[in-house]
């Protein structure tokens, strides 16, 4: 093989990557915010004793987990306006779509985290006279969140990589910018490699942090 790697071209176009990272980070933040808020709500509903709360949450979670996110995104961007008359911009559509999708997975993380806490904890909280909200906020969730950190970081990494699907809605995130670059430079191997490295640099610090937190909490028991 006499393929000649040409990294200098990638370096010359580094501004493209900086722009792409900015959009990717914005997309990630919005999607994460939506996913966390809705995921917490759905997770609590899913853990509820009331059927009227549990069933809708379960249906939502199953539907979003059982269908491809690509279709969900296309549907929100192209089909929703036809039905509802609401046309969101492409970045908003991608944020909402990825957020709604991740909410299903984050809900399951919350549900499993809450379920993993011994029933004695809520018994003790109740016996002191705490209400459901107080017990959740002060006793159950703080403990559940610690157990949720590893799966949550997992989901975060997945979510950030899912933002590359924004390219199908012509969102100028990292992958989309990279593909434009390839059309100019004809250097797909270098470009895709660079994309992988940039994602790695974005995501790895969180994985590292998660491992550190786990060790610290383990030490306290």
């Amino acid at each position: 093989m006499d393929y000649i790697w040409q990294w200098n071209q990638i370096w010359d176009y580094r501004q493209v990557f900086v722009r792409g990272v900015q959009v990717t980070v914005i997309l990630t933040c919005w999607a994460l915010l939506i996913g966390m808020a809705l995921g917490l709500l759905l997770g609590l509903m899913r853990s509820s004793r009331l059927l009227a709360l549990r069933v809708p949450a379960a249906v939502y979670i199953d539907v979003f987990r059982a269908t491809p996110i690509l279709v969900q995104l296309v549907w929100i961007y192209y089909a929703l306006p036809i039905i509802s008359g609401v046309q969101m911009g492409n970045i908003t559509s991608a944020s909402v779509g990825i957020g709604l999708h991740s909410a299903a997975y984050i809900a399951e993380i919350f549900r499993a985290g809450i379920a993993s806490i011994d029933r004695g904890q809520s018994d003790a909280a109740k016996s002191l006279g705490m209400g459901y909200g107080q017990a959740m906020r002060r006793i159950i969730l703080p403990q559940a969140v610690r157990r949720m950190v590893p799966p949550f970081i997992n989901e975060f990494a997945t979510l950030m990589k899912l933002t590359t699907l924004g390219s199908v809605l012509a969102v100028n995130e990292l992958l989309h910018e990279a593909e434009n670059l390839i059309n100019n430079t004809y250097r797909p191997l270098e470009t895709y490699t660079a994309v992988a490295v940039v994602f790695g640099l974005l995501i790895y610090p969180f994985i590292w942090l998660s491992q550190r937190l786990e060790q610290r909490w383990k030490a306290r028991g």
Partner: peptide, 29 residues
Amino acid sequence: RRIRARMGMVFQGFNLFPHKTVLENVMEG
């Protein structure tokens, strides 16, 4: 809740809050 708060309960498995110190456990209620 109001009635429960008038009755203290002690459990077989202690059920202390593991993420809080001993003093914080006692202060919580």
